[in-house]
Design a protein around this nucleic acid. Structure first.
Lengths: 120, 120
DNA sequence: TTATCATATGAACACTTATTCATATGTTTC
DNA sequence: GAAACATATGAATAAGTGTTCATATGATAA
């Protein structure tokens, strides 16, 4: 078995140092990369994706979302919280009812990009 | 405690049937929604996002990726498999070495959209 | 104020998933 | 052929996450 030291492995025969230098100069910092992954993680759940797509057409209250998606109010509420924290949806209160809608147009564009990728 | 039946809840006071009809006519089918979430799930991991961003500049072999990201060859290989299965990267063999690169321009665009969302 | 309705949330559980370890596969060189 | 190297992969473990259940909060109406 070869050594598994992540820093020193195969440094003679395979590593292409010129390319590594290039990449290191232009790579986003680790915090940005983590934030990026975090955003996409929010899109990466069926329930949340269904909520977002449903909100393409119209703002909806929690109760309507639950009925549409055939899920409990609690499950929807938990997911809406994640979507709101990550600024994918925004909330508007009207009496007892809270209406949710897409936060901005990036959400739409990101999802459309995903669809394009699926159907390429 | 209120009833939790997902189909029949709060059907008198809250549900906005006109909006629900509108949404149901335009919502992508469940398979598409699941595939969409699946794609974004692939972007939603720090290691895979780091791999993708590193591949922005240049194709790289597994060994270089492991060195760059300070991770074991095995961990990188497992993640590359997921990226390849979902058509985010492609592989090119050259002797013992396998070079990976971004599969198409959608990957770039999707990540750029994510960055835009972060910095809005 | 009390009752009722819509929504939010904490804790527990089940399920998923990323990494590690060990090993297998595929390629080149001797 | 055997040895060496780069990569791939199966199994196990640990960490993360979505849903449920129970309950809390906030708002309206009587």
């Amino acid at each position: 078995m070869q050594t598994m030291d992540p820093v020193e492995q195969c440094d003679v025969l395979c590593v292409h140092d010129d390319r590594i230098d290039l990449v290191n100069r232009t790579l986003p910092d680790e915090d940005t990369l983590a934030d990026l992954a975090e955003v996409f993680k929010v899109f990466g759940d069926t329930t949340r994706m269904r909520i977002l797509c449903v909100l393409f057409e119209s703002e909806l209250c929690v109760c309507d979302l639950a009925k549409l998606l055939q899920m409990t109010q609690s499950a929807i509420s938990h997911q809406l919280r994640i979507l709101k924290t990550n600024k994918l949806v925004k909330a508007r209160r009207e009496g007892k009812t809270v209406f949710y809608s897409l936060d901005d147009d990036h959400v739409r564009k990101i999802i459309e990009m995903g669809l394009e990728h699926l159907y390429e």
